[in-house]
Write a protein that binds this DNA or RNA. Structure first.
Lengths: 210, 210
DNA sequence: TAGATTGTTAATCGATTAACAATC
DNA sequence: TAGATTGTTAATCGATTAACAATC
């Protein structure tokens, strides 16, 4: 928050750069020019250079960008050099799927607990963690550093759950409920709106027919 | 595709309007002005009017917008007046979670089958549908109208699966693998990039500390 | 050095916001 | 009618692209 504000559009693109760089790194390529990367990613070379220069000069004239270095730097910018502890509220389909999902772990995001109100689910093990009674959340959050709270409950209780997590000091929410959570502006809310994503598909499908 | 192209930014916002209108409708409100809606949604009234007027004049001077009418019209624009059949490839965590998930059904999106290569999963019932052997996909798609193919397999096989679905004539893919699928430009690809969503959270979390 | 390619400034393009005449 | 609020045009703002001097 020191200098000029980075636009949301730029931040949105960073993970994609990171993904491409990870792939290039894995395939053993050493360097890449903005032009070549732009062709692979289907964006303009200008945009890549502009985006990167928001954070510093990572390239070298006449050479391009060192992939390993740039990968590391973008990782740092995204905060992927740190580890994050998450708790999930909601042990239903989505909560369980997220707890199982391995890709996050590799990026440093760890699910430490799942909470639910359904006694049927208590004790059930999802991946490495057990589903616990909702009543234990407070104690858990007080005893553990929790960075991200995942809202994986149904719409009707999402606000309440979000409020509880924020009250316990959790500073970021990853929300899967189709609702705009109202929280203090020091709390980060990232929404995953699956229905809205599908609606974009149906919108586009319709266009074809006309 | 008749007149001027509607920008992606506008389309992106339509589902959110639809969501707010659904809530207003459920709460029994009859009409709303762009000003009042703008306050609820935290956008400008100007933007709402501009967005809507891309598709026609749905309001009335001095009155505002009739909620039931506008809800229906935006629903039509989004193609929600139709029903869509989906198949899921990948009976793992995400595939199962999506098959269970009820919200899509209410919007007209129906999961008709799940395919996987793991014989352990064959026959397992997820919600209303069974997991079937991948080999049966071709026959299924030929015998049933399939509008949307869901890619819920791991990254390594996502391209192959997508290719198979496109080859069978499926015109829209809902992709959960962290990869940019390469398909003909008459095929719609909508990506749900969970890891990238999480990275935005970690980026923002970092900003706080500085 | 000569060629390549960055970092960065300037130009363009598009999207958002403001303003207001039209009109219910 | 008078007041309210749209639809729409014009002004502003920001993001993307182009261009090029700097420099490896």
């Amino acid at each position: 928050m020191a200098g000029k504000e980075i636009s949301a559009a730029v931040i949105q693109r960073l993970p994609r750069y990171y993904r491409y760089l990870t792939e290039l790194l894995e395939s053993g390529v050493e360097r890449i020019s903005s032009k070549e990367l732009s062709e692979r990613m289907q964006v303009t070379a200008s945009q890549i250079r502009q985006d990167l220069n928001n954070f510093g000069g990572f390239g070298q004239q006449g050479y391009g960008y060192n992939i390993e270095f740039l990968h590391t730097e973008i990782g740092k910018i995204l905060g992927l050099d740190k580890e994050y502890n998450m708790i999930i509220v909601g042990g239903g389909n989505i909560g369980q799927a997220l707890a199982h999902y391995g890709d996050f772990r590799n990026l440093g995001f760890h699910v430490r607990a799942i909470f639910d109100i359904d006694p049927e689910l208590f004790g059930r093990k999802i991946g490495e963690v057990q589903i616990r009674p909702m009543g234990e959340m407070e104690e858990f959050v007080k005893n553990n550093q929790v960075d991200i709270g995942v809202v994986a409950v149904q719409k009707g209780v999402a606000s309440e759950v979000a409020g509880q997590m924020v009250a316990l000091g959790i500073k970021a929410l990853w929300n899967f409920a189709p609702i705009d959570l109202t929280v203090g502006k020091d709390v980060i809310v990232e929404n995953v709106l699956l229905s809205e994503s599908l609606m974009k598909v149906s919108y586009c499908l319709q266009d074809r027919d006309e």
